[in-house]
Amino acid sequence: MTDHTCVRCGAVTPPHDVVSVASPDGGFRLLCSRCFNTEMAHLADVGAFEHPEFTPVRLPDSDGLEHEFHFRSLLFGDQLSLEAFELTSGDEDRAGFRFQLLGDPQSDPFELLGNLVQKVKRALAVRHLVEHAGNLEVAGTTVRGRIEWDSRENGRLPCLVIDGKRVDWTDFGAMLMAFEGWQFRIELVDPSDEA
Rank of each mutant, 00 (worst) to 15 (best):
M1I: 12
M1A: 13
T2Y: 11
D3R: 15
D3G: 11
C6Y: 11
V7L: 13
C9Y: 11
C9A: 06
G10F: 12
P15K: 13
D17C: 02
V18E: 04
V19I: 15
A22D: 13
A22V: 02
G26R: 09
G26E: 06
F28C: 05
R29T: 10
R29M: 12
L30C: 11
L30T: 13
C32G: 05
C32D: 05
C32N: 09
S33G: 11
C35E: 02
F36Y: 14
F36M: 00
E39I: 06
M40H: 04
A41M: 09
L43T: 08
D45F: 11
D45T: 10
V46D: 02
V46I: 13
A48Q: 14
A48F: 02
F49D: 03
F49P: 00
E50Y: 02
E50F: 01
P52F: 04
E53I: 04
E53N: 00
F54N: 00
F54M: 03
T55P: 01
P56V: 03
V57S: 07
L59W: 03
D61P: 06
G64T: 04
E66A: 07
E66F: 10
H67E: 05
F69R: 03
L74Q: 01
L75C: 01
F76V: 09
D78A: 10
D78N: 14
Q79H: 15
S81T: 05
E83C: 12
A84W: 07
A84N: 05
A84P: 01
E86S: 10
E86Y: 04
L87M: 15
D91T: 11
E92M: 12
F97Q: 03
Q100T: 06
D104E: 15
D104V: 08
Q106G: 14
S107R: 03
F110P: 00
L112A: 01
L116I: 07
V117M: 02
V117C: 03
K119M: 02
V120R: 00
K121F: 00
R122W: 13
A125G: 10
V126A: 12
L129E: 11
V130Y: 13
H132Q: 15
G134T: 09
G134D: 03
G134C: 06
N135T: 15
L136A: 05
L136P: 06
E137D: 11
A139Q: 06
A139D: 07
G140D: 05
G140A: 08
T141V: 13
R144M: 15
R146H: 02
W149D: 09
S151N: 12
E153D: 07
G155W: 13
R156V: 15
R156D: 15
C159M: 12
C159F: 06
C159S: 10
V161S: 06
I162F: 03
I162K: 01
D163W: 00
D163S: 05
G164E: 03
R166W: 05
D168K: 08
W169M: 10
D171G: 01
M175Q: 10
L176I: 07
F179N: 14
F179T: 14
E180H: 11
E180L: 10
E180N: 11
G181N: 02
W182A: 12
W182Y: 14
F184I: 10
R185S: 09
L188Y: 08
V189C: 14
S192L: 03
S192K: 00
